[in-house]
Simulated scan of single mutants.
Amino acid sequence: MKQDKVQPASPRPVVKPWVRTVLEFGPLILFFTVFMLYRDQNVVLLGREYGGFVLATLVFVPVMIVALLILWRLTGRLAPMQVATLILVTVFGGLTLWLNDPRFLKIKPTIVFSLFAGILATGLLLRRNWLGAVLSEALPMTPEGWRILTIRMTLFFAAMAIGNEIVWRTMSETTWVWFETFGQPILIFAFLMGNAGLFKAHALPEDEAAAKAAAPADSER
């Protein structure tokens, strides 16, 4: 009996870097801009008075939802952290607007970072390479490399969650907005750059990485 040939998977759409950057960081920059413009003012909308933070949230939440949906439409996928962020921003941003209370949006990063630290820590305890399962296509590494990176990312996410709690609970609202808009992205970038040596030391040879990437398709034949 003649077997049907398995069609190769269609390549994922390529999104221009500047388009991805605008979609990922544009809503946050817009939030920062609106907050800085109205941080010392109160605006009345539909009979309710809102401060600059809540007004910026009112702009940020729908723009971020639309931006991530556009990114999903262009690429066909969203990273796990983007999905978690989308859900939590919708929930806690909505609570911020409904209750007119900035605290709900401020604790969102704490929950996101704690969630991923917990997931990675659970994977370590169960000896499961969950991080590699998500990122191995873009970053082929040895199992030991993934284990080390998972430990480091668990500690990093835990530290970020603690840092967010310290900033929003002990510092001014403006300081937290600066930290959320620029501080956290800079720290994440610095963390990734700091692990460049790990990526290089545990990178798979090109032929082995190509064979691993093709393995799922071969197993279906």
Results as ranks from 00 to 15, higher is better:
202 H>G: 00
23 L>P: 02
207 D>I: 12
216 P>F: 11
31 F>I: 00
88 L>K: 13
80 P>K: 06
75 T>L: 05
20 R>V: 10
85 T>R: 04
214 A>W: 07
19 V>Y: 01
173 E>A: 04
152 R>F: 08
144 E>V: 09
91 V>I: 15
91 V>N: 04
74 L>Q: 01
86 L>Q: 08
6 V>I: 13
184 Q>G: 00
195 N>C: 08
133 A>C: 01
74 L>M: 09
158 A>V: 05
179 F>Q: 04
131 L>G: 02
192 L>N: 11
60 F>S: 05
161 A>G: 11
213 A>N: 13
146 W>Q: 03
21 T>I: 11
6 V>D: 01
95 L>Y: 12
185 P>D: 00
6 V>R: 11
144 E>L: 14
121 A>D: 01
93 G>H: 09
183 G>R: 03
66 V>Q: 04
170 T>M: 09
144 E>Q: 14
32 F>N: 06
132 G>W: 03
216 P>Q: 10
45 L>N: 03
147 R>N: 08
126 L>G: 05
134 V>F: 11
37 L>H: 13
157 F>N: 15
63 V>L: 10
148 I>Q: 13
70 I>S: 00
80 P>T: 02
135 L>R: 08
91 V>C: 09
33 T>F: 14
71 L>N: 03
97 L>E: 01
200 K>P: 00
122 T>P: 05
111 I>E: 10
33 T>S: 14
17 P>N: 07
4 D>M: 03
203 A>C: 06
36 M>P: 02
57 T>K: 11
21 T>C: 13
181 T>S: 14
137 E>V: 02
123 G>Q: 02
128 R>F: 08
31 F>C: 07
63 V>P: 13
50 Y>C: 08
205 P>I: 07
168 W>N: 03
14 V>S: 06
208 E>G: 00
125 L>Y: 13
123 G>R: 07
